[in-house]
Amino acid sequence: MAVFLIATYEYHLTKNIALFFNQEQQTISDVWKQDVIFNKAEQVHIVAPSGSGKTSLIHFLYGLRKDYEGSILYNNNNIKDFDAEKFAQWRQQHISIVFQDLRLFTEQTVLQNLEVKRVLAPYHTESKITDMAKRLGIESKLGKLCKTCSYGEQQRIAIIRSLLQPFDFLLLDEPFSHLDEANRMKAMELMNEEAAARNASIILADLKQIDYFKADRVLVV
């Protein structure tokens, strides 16, 4: 499989993209060893059981790992060829992410965690952080150290952080695993709004299909 994004912003995963490991399982996949294109503004749901390489795929798409065969093209440029500066610029302007393991600065406050992302490529004003925190019910946590927040709260912090920058693709790796139904829906609604405002695509990877994510396409890994 190869993913690529061209001038209209798309990821193109070329046909032979595959994990270096677990090759047998990949033979029945919609993604591995397939030619896949993600277009901008398209909502894609990737459903994958544990161990099928879901997180690996998200990391490949974000350029964190390079241990795959095939190519991932963004606007026809192979992201394996990006240097550190190009990745930085790309992650500031085009790609945003919610990691499965969240990756927050646990020793800093919630607000510092959000502000450090917002100031990098300001898309929203500072007050928008409070608005979003209020919508997801973590407003009271903004001044608290991140490590004192529950995992569910931290998940919402990571979601807000991903929405503070410009992007064409929002990559989500099990973003709701520790949220209750009501909070999941609120978070999904917020993300849909933000993606729509940017005419951006959401690529959501989860263990099972999420009903309230209105996907244009569902790919089973």
Partner: peptide, 15 residues
């Protein structure tokens, strides 16, 4: 760890 995360979030190494 913090610096690595800053780079992951899109901070440029040069900057």
């Amino acid at each position: 760890d913090n610096l690595q995360l800053l780079l992951t979030l899109g901070y440029s190494p040069k900057w």
